[in-house]
Each structure stands twice: as structure tokens, then as C-alpha cells.
Amino acid sequence: MIEINGVSKRFGKVVALDNVSFSVRNGEVVGYVGPNGAGKTTTIRVAVGVLPPDSGDVIIDGYSVTSEKPKACARIGWVPESPIFEMEFKALDYFIYLATYKGLSVPEARRVGKELLELVGLGDAMNRKLATFSLGMKKRFALAVSMIGDPPNFMFDEVLNGLDPQGIMFFRRVVEDFRRRGKAVLFSSHILSEVQMIADRVVFINKGRIIGVYTMDEVVKLASPHIVIVLKQIDDSVISILSRFGEVEVSGNRVILRNPKAEPSKILEELVKSGYSVEEFRVSEERTLEELFMKLIGGETR
């Protein structure tokens, strides 16, 4: 489990993270969504222990990244957006080198390296220099390294960026496999359709602040087409009428009719014919996650 607790980070005068808090439970994939510069990568770099926070902490399975970094980092794998390695190494050699930091002996690291590099599709490239790797190969390599010791938590930072469809498919499968195996996965992306496909929950961040945390069900609801109807008076009869046209949510004298099954004019006509005084009748079309996000940025926080 990954717990981000009130993390703040400044770079000079720029506030990169402002009291960011959320968690990723075991067996859950959390999409971390925000525009470029929102603070996604900074959050993840703090969470994997490479960037010390100004305040707050990240707890990985009960271990603090700031005060118990070796224990915390042993339980987390990280695939950066643009992995940078020491390019003079050959892939397997560098894998072995990194694996020794995770406590593996050289022969053990060699065996594990061959297995994992094969698993991520780099079996033919393990004796190639890292300098010759494409971005996709580097990400696969980072994934292989992050899988050393089979940690229970993973962080994927914009991992689908720059990948070909095959690569995207590969990482999607990996994430789904991790979820099935009960791992906590934080998946940052600005490709919202991907997040929509993979994530169980979505955390929206903008300008270093969390602006919304939604389950996918909630996101679907927020994004679905609906009609907002404000009536002078609401009773069981009107709810009964509206229920025939879709899912009804009542809040005061305001009714939200989701996924309407009839034309809005027909619904309005029915209400008027039944003698209800309609003060407002507003039709909202289906929204994409992008539109929802833009709307959230526009001030609709939760």
C-alpha cells in the first residue's frame, strides 16, 4: 500500500506539490491524472525516494520513504517516464549491478536478470549496450529492474508516453496482471482514455494540488449525459414520472436525470403536462475524461 501524506515540495519559488495526500490500496490501480507540470512526476520521485520532500511523507507498506528509505524502496518498483541509465553498460550487466543494490549476489542477479529481461521482451537485447536502446526498450528495462524481488507496490510514470501500440498493450497487460496479483499500482498519465481503461480510481492533480479523487464508477457517472431539472416542488409522483426516463438523483428541489431514454423535449412535455412547475431544464451531453478534467480544473473540486 502506498500512502502519500501531506507531501509538499518547492523548487525555488515554484510550488511543485502543495500538501498532496492520497493512497493506493493493495490490488488497486490508481490513475494519477494532470496536465504537464501538474506535479505528477514530482509526487512519484518523492514517493520512490529520489527527491526529498520539504514536508510530509510517503509510507510504503508501513515504511517511511524519508526515514526508512531502504526498507520502503525494497517494496516499490518504479518505471520512470524517460528512464536514464549509465549508457556504457550492457543491459544484463547493468541489471546485475542494480540488482546487487537490492541484495542479490552476482550469480543470482545474473539468473534473475536473464529471466526478467526475457519476460519483458528484452531477451535478445540483454547483451546490447543500453545506449542503443529505444525509449520503449528502456522502459521495459526499467520494468525488469523494478520487478527484482517482486515488490508489492509499483509506480508507473507516464509509462505509455512514446510507446508503440504493442508497447502500450504490453504495459497495460502488466498493470492488469499486477492488480490481479494484489499489488498497489500508481499509474500516472495524461492519456486519459488509457487511465479510464486501467484504473480503479483516479486522482486528479493540478498545479501541485489534488483537485479530485474519484472511483471509476463516479467518473463514469460524472461523464455520462444527463438533464438537470429544477422544480418548484418535488414529490414521489414526479420522481415516479422521471424514473421512467432514466436514473434519478434528487438533491433538494434539483433532480439529475442520468442517461435519459427519451428526447429532452418529450420529458419536459410530460412534466408540464403533469402540472409541475419547471424552473430550470438543462441538458448536458456525455463528457470525456478530458472534459471532466477540464471541468474540474475549472473549479469543480472535491
Partner: peptide
Amino acid sequence: EFLASMPIT
């Protein structure tokens, strides 16, 4: 940076 993400201080 990637090296620093290993379980070391």
C-alpha cells in the same frame, strides 16, 4: 536518479 531509487540511502 534511477540508481537512487534502489533500496539504499
